[in-house]
Design a protein around this nucleic acid. Sequence first.
DNA 1: GATAACTCGTACAGGTCTGTTCAAGTTCTA
DNA 2: TAGAACTTGAACAGACCTGTACGAGTTATC
Lengths: 203, 203
Amino acid sequence: MTATTGIPKRADARRNIAAILDAATACLAVDPDASINDIAIAAGVGRVTLYGHFPNRAALVARVVDRAIQNSDAELEAVDINGDAHEALGRLLEASWHVTHRYGALVLAAQSALPDRDFRDAHDKPAQRVLKLLRRGRREGTIRTDMPLDWQVTTIQGLLHAASGAVQRGELSAERAPALVRTTVLAALTSGHSDAPGSGSSP
Amino acid sequence: MTATTGIPKRADARRNIAAILDAATACLAVDPDASINDIAIAAGVGRVTLYGHFPNRAALVARVVDRAIQNSDAELEAVDINGDAHEALGRLLEASWHVTHRYGALVLAAQSALPDRDFRDAHDKPAQRVLKLLRRGRREGTIRTDMPLDWQVTTIQGLLHAASGAVQRGELSAERAPALVRTTVLAALTSGHSDAPGSGSSP
DNA sequence: GATAACTCGTACAGGTCTGTTCAAGTTCTA
DNA sequence: TAGAACTTGAACAGACCTGTACGAGTTATC
């Protein structure tokens, strides 16, 4: 996706682009309606410079989201999905928490700035990972099957967002959040008896 | 709260005010950033007429939210809180679902248009009811006590919003939602064994 | 049916945001 | 060090929103 043009950008240009992308990520994660002006200022460049690198708001948001997805994907890819589905889901949840918390409301910015299709594709990808794991858990009997699979995904996303919001509002410490999300989601989706008292660190 | 002025409004004025309030509720529930223009059109009145009844956006939103809170409160007040806490919470959840679904994103409109204090007060009130019930459930041993009370409230709100969103996006039918919310929340917050298979209609 | 209350369209002022242009500077690169 | 690439502030046009003003037309109410 990186420009097919043979001429490489100048060093300062590349530096600025990176700064803009970083600033945009930070701004949009907090306020999905952050203006181009705010972002330019946060990046330490002029508004015109920003427009020199990104044709419009949508393009910028798209790039930011793209990068966020890529990073998130790498982070989630590193999670060990094998072994007991219950345990694996727990690990995936904690990793997902970090991603959700870091990128916060960015998803909302994407939703209003990107064409529906693009947004859909981007947001669905991480869901696939969860979906796969849930299917396995259902097959193995650790995940309850008396509710739609989609709803279980919705449940997970909902709780992740809720936790992220609570932390941002200062109602919950960022340290406690991942364990709580893990415990709560597992309790909600587990079929039989549920234990998982502490945030177990058993090797 | 209704104007202390002795002179009652004319009939058509009252009718229009009602129409504006209804339209505003509907518009804001879908898009918290709906413009005054959109609302006026939806209400079937001129923009100027709207400004004749409400001095500004904030005042209109405040009235809409006020009414929504009042209605919600009545609806939730009608729920039987007595008896088994587990069962009672189930009933309260289904009622809460209807409220959440009806007023959707209105809470967001309130958040950005109202002074923080007013908003806080309004949104905290319904939470009190849940809080009270959760406390009792914890005391009685039906609700798990190994996670903060606040988090449990957050969990409930998060799942309600998630369900509302899923229905609006067409991923979930409005009929199935209440039972799913109920089952899922109870599974998440119940301490011991959890049953609640079907959406029981046992008298 | 007369009068006050109400509505309506148009139009305006002030604000914010987006995206573009331009002319002048700065900095990388070769 | 020369030239191309890049940055920059100021300034503009266009869009949209809020809130206000006005004059003419409707409609409830007594």
